[in-house]
Amino acid sequence: MTGPVDHVVTSGTFSLDGGTWDVDNNVWIVGDDREVVVVDAAHDADAIAAAVGDRRVSAVVCTHAHDDHVNRAPELADRFGAPILLHPAEAPLWEMTHPDRAPDRELADGDTVTAGGVVLRVLHTPGHSPGSCSLHAPELGTVFTGDTLFQGGPGATGRSFSSFDTIIDSIRERLLTLPGDTTVRTGHGDSTTVGAELPHLEEWIARGQ
């Protein structure tokens, strides 16, 4: 029996601004026994496909377009006949990895993506990158934050197309306003909760300044 949220960790590299780093990515598969969405198709298409199994993939959703989050998106989309969804502000980053293949549909704040009866509401949470989005599933008590919010603080903002002030605004206004028991499922590392991160907001701001 598969759950409403399945999880695969894949390993590879992240490259931007002339640097390359080894990374482990969380890939989230959300839905039921019949239909799912894949959130952030990273590094290993075969491992992701194995976790999907014989379920229908209704969409490959990209929280943002850093190469470690989208490098297997076209392959997975083609394999399962699913559209790739991405916020249009991510176009410059997407084109660095996939110059010859555009996403199929745009994500916008307030959109919903549905699979297997699970409704994911799109929250535009820029800062880590201009079009970074989080996906809130209220009935599951969870939010998928990509690289916007981690256990222990905000995502990195020291590279091109990023802004510390913007990511703090996104976290404060869009994520930390969710119920405190909401599970935060991140793009890398361990999950956390909104309640666990909320008390540390001012510390992050002080560190960032």
Rank of each mutant, 00 (worst) to 15 (best):
R172P: 05
S191E: 14
H64Q: 07
G195H: 15
W21I: 03
E202N: 07
T142A: 14
A115S: 09
H124K: 06
V52L: 08
F80P: 01
L140S: 00
V9W: 11
S58Q: 00
S163Q: 09
G127A: 06
V122C: 04
G208H: 10
L149Q: 12
G189T: 14
P88W: 08
T145H: 14
A91D: 08
P138W: 04
H98D: 07
N71I: 01
V5G: 02
E35R: 09
R172Q: 11
G131Y: 01
D147A: 04
V60T: 00
F150M: 11
P99R: 12
T177P: 10
V5R: 07
L123I: 10
T112E: 13
S134M: 10
V70Q: 02
V70E: 02
L198G: 11
N71M: 02
V27N: 11
T13P: 03
V113K: 06
A77E: 04
E197Y: 09
P103V: 13
H128A: 09
L201S: 02
S58D: 02
T148D: 11
T148V: 15
V61Y: 03
T142C: 10
T186P: 15
V143D: 06
L120G: 00
E203L: 15
D68E: 07
I48V: 11
A51Y: 04
D111A: 12
H69M: 12
E75K: 11
D181Y: 12
G81D: 08
R72Q: 11
L93H: 05
T112F: 10
R72H: 07
G187N: 13
H69Q: 06
D33T: 13
S132Q: 08
D24A: 12
S132N: 09
V184E: 01
V184M: 09
D104P: 05
S134F: 02
H136S: 00
P138S: 02
L201N: 06
R34V: 12
T2E: 13
H188R: 13
T63H: 08
D22N: 09
T186H: 13
Q209E: 15
G116V: 06
D78W: 01
G195Y: 12
T192E: 07
G195P: 15
V38F: 11
D67P: 01
S170P: 10
A137T: 00
H64R: 00
V118P: 00
S160G: 14
V30N: 03
